[in-house]
Design a protein around this nucleic acid. Structure first.
Lengths: 229, 229
DNA sequence: CGTTGAGTTGACCATCGTCAACAGGAGTGG
DNA sequence: CCACTCCTGTTGACGATGGTCAACTCAACG
């Protein structure tokens, strides 16, 4: 794990913050960072801890979450390849993140990254755009959490994840679900029992087919209708 | 309504994006903008419409929301004095906003504002920080919407609003509630009936006292405990 | 072959949504 | 000044959605 290997061949360069960097700027940034690997379930960073490094996910899947006083967990989002994690409000992380499956990321010390931002105002604009995108995703998610039936939540979850995978993987009718049922439940504000049941209801109605590690969408149109009602 | 009057005397300058601007920079920005006033219930901007102006709220209260296909509304946040509204992902607004009560804002054409940003990279950083703050608020809100009882939602809503008012108004035990019950319900993901009932339950237990236009907090400690459980 | 953890499924019931009736205040017109 | 309407908020009755608890299956692994 020295400096990052081959940004030129990075699969997600075009969707990450790096898309606005020239070869020269990319070289400077690469020299600051390291590639890090996380095993499934490994912690990436924790809420309330000083944010001294930032991450750019290049492979795998991360879950971002906060814990309630009663111990229950709200997953506020999933981090896919190309996503940028770890920019804090003040000095500390606003949420925890860990790896759902084997995950690879570029790790960059925040101080160095911050100086790099000073020298590259266009990267700040890019970062800002991605943050606004995250805010939009958060609003979208609130629409689900606020007032939607379990079926609508699940349908919207599958559609949304499908669309996000589609941007970074060869398209497939099967939505990969590397996260467990508990993760899905904590994301959608459901109990694990309801999450499991709802998924099977959709399968019973031939809207999806549950496969190991994912779900194949059989009736996209009806699923979308369900998601948006 | 010519240019903005007296930024020097602006109540919310220190909490708005303007806090990082020098007198000179402030003068330049002021020349770009206008003060606009909205009557109660007036639309400020609408989802999916081109975002050609941005707003800085200086007085009053705005609600930001999105509509579901079934016509129901999710309020994704309230805009208080000092809040910055209207920066879009691409070219269009991601949500609608209207004035809850009589509201005053600085309106700045986005093109001019964008050029001003080009010349003032530190303002972009400031804007980015405020956007991250908004993302944090959104996450906080998800905690409520995801899995909380009606009582916990309402308690957290009152505490949260109290803290936000406290930053811009002389402190008071009474939380101003200029928004109607339907707004509160749509914010918390409840029906209006449950919102009203829950508020009265809290009053029955002497945690709050319902007053015209607001709620006086009688037992902050227990209310906080309720909110965070 | 036992253990462990994830996922599934059933039974029961609490919370909260829906529907509806009603109260009170503001605005309007006679 | 009063009658009428409209709108917001309150409150009751009822039922559905989804949470809780628990039993069970199954695959992975030692």
């Amino acid at each position: 794990m020295s400096t990052l290997p081959l940004c030129e061949k990075c699969d997600v360069r075009s969707m990450s913050i790096c898309s606005v960097l020239s070869e020269r700027e990319l070289g400077t940034l690469r020299a600051l960072g390291q590639e890090v690997r996380f095993r499934a379930r490994a912690a990436i960073f924790a809420e309330e801890r000083p944010a001294d490094v930032v991450y750019n996910i290049t492979a795998g899947l991360a879950r971002m979450y906060r814990l309630r006083n009663d111990g229950s967990r709200q997953i506020v989002g999933f981090g896919l390849p190309g996503d940028f994690l770890g920019m804090p409000v003040n000095e500390c992380h606003g949420f925890s993140a860990d790896a759902v499956e084997f995950t690879v990321a570029c790790r960059i010390p925040r101080k160095g990254f911050s100086r790099f931002l000073d020298d590259n105002p266009h990267l700040v604009r890019r970062l800002h755009d991605l943050t606004i995108l995250g805010l939009n995703q958060a609003h979208e998610h609130m629409m689900l959490l606020g007032r939607a039936t379990a079926r609508a939540k699940m349908a919207a979850f599958l559609i949304g994840l499908r669309d996000r995978w589609a941007r970074i993987k060869p398209p497939s009718a099967t939505v990969a679900l590397p996260m467990g049922r508990q993760d899905i439940a904590d994301f959608l504000g459901l109990s694990i029992a309801t999450a499991s049941r709802t998924l099977h209801h959709l399968a019973d109605e031939r809207l999806i087919l549950i496969e190991p590690g994912g779900a194949r969408i059989l009736d996209l149109k009806r699923l979308k209708w369900l998601a948006g009602s």
